[in-house]
Design a protein around this nucleic acid. Structure first.
Length: 676
DNA sequence: TTATAACTAAACAAAT
DNA sequence: TATTTGTTTAGTTATA
């Protein structure tokens, strides 16, 4: 799942990158990847080769820009400022518009001149400029100028579009603009890489012996917002390296379509952890600068009239003043760089924390999300703690031990804890006997399997519940307000309560019907609405006596646990201890808690007592008084709400009803029929 | 090895 | 007529 999302993020990033520019933008990605791939290598030292490379890139960009400008001038001469005619609806018009939208830096001749000037500056001159504060002011001026020029060029582009130019020409222009934009972005990437390498060295110190870096000249060509973005990129890149180094794979925060398409990043993108961060990765410098232009007054460092630079909080009346403040107070100096590093550490810590939490979440999801095809990875119910249980589960998890259906996952065992924890307050609505194959091997009481406690687990995990069909059917019926359900309602309960039963419906529904028909404990009742199914508790208890063989101490422990957990009176205790007489009398106390608990206890003890005491058991026909339980449906009068809550309350009232009639008189039926 | 419980599958009939 | 519901039988597996 995470892998898919990770891949999806990757593709989304590309999709966003491509956007409306279509395949032409892939070129940008390709070129950017080339530039980025260079940056993948640790550029700790910035040597002459790097400088030469940057200059080469700039030269290429300039060449493209020159061609673009020439063609634009020619097109303007041809098209002039003709009023738009009829081609407004031509689809081709969208191409230049989209390009204009995605190219925040439409280069004007003046800007080209500026770039040319930068190009001819020697490193020494650039270093001088680096030391001059006027450079920042120049940037601001350039920014304003740049905006004006951009608006002008966009206007020209629109006019060209309305002039009805051929789509091919427009596309050509757009492509050329795009190519130039790519060159600029490459330059930006290189700048970022240099900054990053400087960052590694510490506060932009320049190695001795190296020529003056083209950093500042390159930065001069950027507007302040781009500088901000640059720092952002630096921060992200640093963090990404840290996380990558830690194998947290949180990804390349500097990822653009560039790095995301870089082969070396593929594995990271495929990493589940990369999904979330992958969303961050789509923030390309281009998009950032674009968003800043689209929302000129939205700046990560500006909000509510306050500069959000760490430790600043200077009040800026408007955005322009903020920009001035930003450029003056938070210029590219040691102090700002140090603050940036602090912020980087903060982000880094947060990233690490996020990575840890992600791992935790992943582990939780891995634990809870059980695939039916991964039986050994099946999670356990929340209350499974017994090592015996776990070992048992491991053995059960083997494919050989699950021959029934290939899709049958490991049945999580219900708690088989010993002693006082056998019956808990949450086991009021016990399902009852679970599948014996999972329970009796270790001679521990398991009927306290608590569906309520693991309810959420089974609702979400496609794990076969370790209960028999009969137990589940009984539980479904007892949970219903009327203690009766139609077959379809039983179906619905199964699907509602267990994710496992949301598939292979034909199989388990057939099993449900089979169990309803097979077991006498399920009584079919005809009423005006149709047929409903009820539970005959006595029959249910007779159906499967639980055996706890040869462990009296355990039984004693169970009894003590019952006393420990409940306020059962001495008579009840004596009754329990004496034999396995069904505890309907407890339900008749009118205390639903006691009634429910008695039900649970009875389930626990019936088999045990049956085994430890004499051969007499409640399955013996001799205990007919307790078996004279009328099904629920006979009760027509309104129920006492308190009694109705207990599974046995209705049975209790029916127990003493003199005029019940048996739908199925099990006493008259052959024993072997009941025993299958 | 045997008996038993549980499960699955299937056939069949009746009801809806 | 198709689907649902209910019954029954047969075979398999796990366990004591």
């Amino acid at each position: 799942m995470m892998q898919e999302s990770g891949t999806e993020t990757k593709s989304n990033g590309s999709a966003i990158q491509n956007g409306s520019s279509g395949g032409s933008h892939l070129l940008e990605c390709g070129s950017l990847r080339e530039g980025r791939s260079n940056g993948e290598t640790p550029a700790v030292d910035i040597g002459a080769a790097d400088l030469a490379h940057v200059q080469q890139q700039q030269q290429q960009a300039l060449q493209v820009a020159r061609q673009l400008l020439l063609q634009q001038q020619q097109q303007q001469q041809v098209s002039g400022l003709k009023s738009p005619k009829r081609n407004d609806k031509q689809p081709a018009l969208q191409v230049p518009v989209s390009v204009a939208m995605m190219t925040p830096q439409v280069i004007t001749p003046q800007q080209m001149q500026q770039i040319l000037q930068q190009q001819v500056l020697s490193p020494q001159q650039l270093q001088v400029l680096l030391q001059q504060q006027q450079a920042l002011m120049l940037q601001q001026q350039l920014q304003e100028f740049y905006k004006k020029q951009q608006e002008q060029l966009q206007l020209q582009l629109l006019q060209q579009q309305h002039a009805g130019k051929q789509p091919k020409e427009q596309q050509q222009v757009a492509t050329q603009q795009l190519a130039f934009q790519q060159q600029l972005l490459q330059m930006q990437q290189l700048q970022q890489q240099h900054l990053l390498s400087l960052q590694r060295q510490g506060l932009l110190t320049i190695q001795p012996g190296q020529p003056a870096l083209p950093l500042q000249p390159l930065a001069q060509g950027m507007i302040p917002t781009e500088l901000q973005q640059l720092w952002k990129e630096v921060t992200s890149a640093h963090t990404a390296e840290e996380t990558t180094g830690n194998n947290h794979s949180s990804l390349d925060l500097t990822t653009t379509c560039v790095s995301s398409s870089a082969p070396s990043k593929t594995s990271l993108i495929m990493n589940p952890h990369a999904s979330t961060n992958g969303q961050l990765s789509v923030h390309t410098p281009k998009r950032e600068s674009l968003s800043h232009e689209e929302h000129p007054h939205s700046h990560p460092l500006y909000g509510h009239g306050v500069c959000k630079w760490p430790g600043c909080e200077a009040v800026c009346e408007d955005f322009q003043s903020f920009l001035k403040h930003l450029n003056s107070e938070h210029a590219l100096d040691d102090r700002s760089t140090a603050q940036c590093r602090v912020q980087m550490q903060v982000v880094q810590q947060l990233e690490l924390q996020l990575a840890k939490d992600k791992e935790r979440l992943q582990a939780m999801m891995t634990h809870l999300h059980v695939k039916s095809t991964e039986p050994k990875a099946a999670p356990q119910p929340l209350n499974l703690v017994s090592s015996v249980t776990l070992s048992k589960s491991a053995s059960e998890a083997s494919p050989q031990s699950l021959p029934h259906t290939p899709t049958t996952p490991t049945a999580p065992l219900t708690p088989v804890t010993q002693g006082p924890s056998v019956i808990t307050t949450t086991s009021m609505h016990t399902v009852g006997p679970i599948r014996r194959r999972y329970s009796d091997k270790y001679n521990v009481p398991i009927s306290s399997a608590d569906i309520a406690q693991n309810q959420e687990f089974y609702k979400n995990a496609e794990v076969r519940p370790p209960f028999t069909y009969a137990s589940l059917i009984r539980q479904a019926i007892l949970e219903s307000p009327e203690k009766q359900l139609t077959l379809n309602e039983i179906y619905n309960w199964f699907t509602r309560m267990f994710a496992y039963f949301r598939r292979n419906a034909a199989t388990w529904k057939n099993a449900v019907r089979h169990n309803l028909s097979l077991h006498k404990c399920f009584v079919r009742v005809e009423n005006v609405k149709g047929a409903v199914w009820t539970v005959d508790e006595v029959e249910f208890q007779k159906r499967r006596p639980q055996k706890i063989s040869g462990n009296p101490s355990l039984i004693k422990n169970m009894q003590s646990s019952h006393a420990y957990c409940t306020p059962l009176n001495a008579a009840l205790q004596a009754s329990i201890a004496e034999n396995s007489i069904p505890l309907y009398t407890t339900a008749s106390m009118g205390n639903p808690t006691l009634g429910n608990l008695a039900s649970a206890i009875r389930e626990e003890l019936n088999g045990a007592m049956e085994h430890t005491n004499s051969n007499e058991s409640d399955s013996s026909p001799g205990r007919s008084p307790m078996q004279a339980v009328h099904p629920v449906h006979v009760k027509e009068e309104p129920l006492d709400p308190e009694e109705a809550e207990g599974p046995l309350s209705l049975v209790t009232t029916a127990n003493h009803s003199p005029d019940f009639d048996h739908d199925r008189d099990y006493e008259d039926e052959p024993v072997n029929e009941d025993m299958e």
